[in-house]
Design a protein around this nucleic acid. Structure first.
Length: 311
DNA sequence: AATTGTATCAACCGCCAACTG
DNA sequence: CCAGTTGGCGGTTGATACAAT
């Protein structure tokens, strides 16, 4: 399987480019060839990861240690998943980014098999594209509000619909908070309190008990401050491993259900006109968020959405 | 069919913190 | 303690694929 993936790797088609730089000196740059990939995979299989510079030399690769590390982590590692960011994963990315900002590696810890590079690419291509459509900055309050009140609920709907379509234990309409909270987000896990939660794939996960008060207490306070809301809570309530198990089951179903691409594939104007999840956003444009007051400017997450949907 | 525009993603770069001798 | 090295991270770029005209 791994070999199949490597065979389909773009490295194959770029042999020419790589060859062009081959005789430039000691170190090669540019796309990796299949041969290089095999050298690296074989070496790590036999010796494990180690100091990357010496690894590169010992493996007979004329690459920098950095380049080898990057190739391994982002592409060759056996457990790496690529392509088709699922709705579950999109939701988790949006949620975690709202707390931590561009801490890609940190966010990636909660998406098993996904690399920081891929998440970063997803953000830059998909999310920033939507910000562009709305003619606002991706970091602006306006855009974050749209994400919170439109995009994320939309994702929740999508995940629920897919779960229902798969004939699983689905929450009855109207949107049940319990079902909504069964999302794979650490924020969702806050509510679970050792409940057994039906996931998209029908798998069950037992969430650790942590009070939502404690979660609130650790919320971010300052605009764009990514140093707060350390995963202290997230880590307690759902470690990367917990998140992994959750996501593995849900994303497996998602793959079967061909959740491909972006939930917001249409235009934002269409979406704002048709979305049913958040009437506040759909009927009167975006709400006066200044009056919401419950949470601070940059403190928004799935939890906030759920609270507001209940109101 | 050819050209142009856009999206995607692998790979590189530079910075910084941690590690090592 | 210090200087050099290494690893990790976020930002950016360039090649390629795909879609639209």
């Amino acid at each position: 399987m791994e070999m199949m993936r490597m065979a389909m790797s773009p490295a194959m088609s770029s042999a020419t480019a790589a060859a062009a730089s081959e005789d430039e000196g000691d170190l090669r740059r540019g796309p990796w060839t299949v041969e290089e990939d095999m050298l690296l995979v074989d070496y790590i299989a036999n010796h494990g990861e180690g100091r990357w510079n010496s690894l590169a030399r010992c493996a007979g690769l004329r690459r920098t240690g950095k380049s080898c590390r990057l190739r391994w982590l982002n592409y060759l590692r056996p457990d790496v998943r690529r392509g088709n960011i699922t709705a579950d994963e999109q939701l988790l990315i949006l949620d975690l980014h709202s707390r931590w900002g561009n801490r890609w590696s940190k966010i990636a810890q909660y998406l098993p098999g996904r690399t920081d590079n891929e998440i970063k690419n997803y953000w830059r291509t998909r999310v920033q594209k939507h910000a562009k459509q709305l003619r606002c900055d991706v970091n602006s309050k306006e855009f974050r509000d749209v994400v919170r009140h439109v995009w994320m609920p939309r994702l929740v709907e999508r995940i629920q619909a897919d779960a229902a379509a798969a004939g699983e234990v689905a929450a009855p309409a109207p949107v049940s908070a319990a079902a909504t909270r069964s999302m794979s987000s650490p924020a969702g896990a806050m509510y679970l309190h050792h409940q057994q939660i039906p996931l998209a794939a029908g798998a069950m996960v037992v969430a650790p008990a942590v009070s939502s008060e404690a979660y609130h207490h650790h919320g971010c306070g300052g605009g764009g401050d990514t140093s707060c809301s350390e995963p202290s809570q997230a880590a307690v309530t759902m470690s990367p491993d917990d998140a992994s198990s959750t996501l593995r089951s849900s994303s497996a179903a998602a793959e079967n259900d061909t959740i491909h691409g972006d939930v917001l594939s249409g235009s934002w104007s269409e979406l704002l006109a048709t979305t049913t999840t958040t009437t506040i956003a759909a009927t009167a444009g975006l709400p006066d968020f200044d009056e919401l007051g419950d949470f601070e400017d940059n403190l928004w997450s799935l939890e906030d959405i759920w609270l507001h949907q209940q109101c």
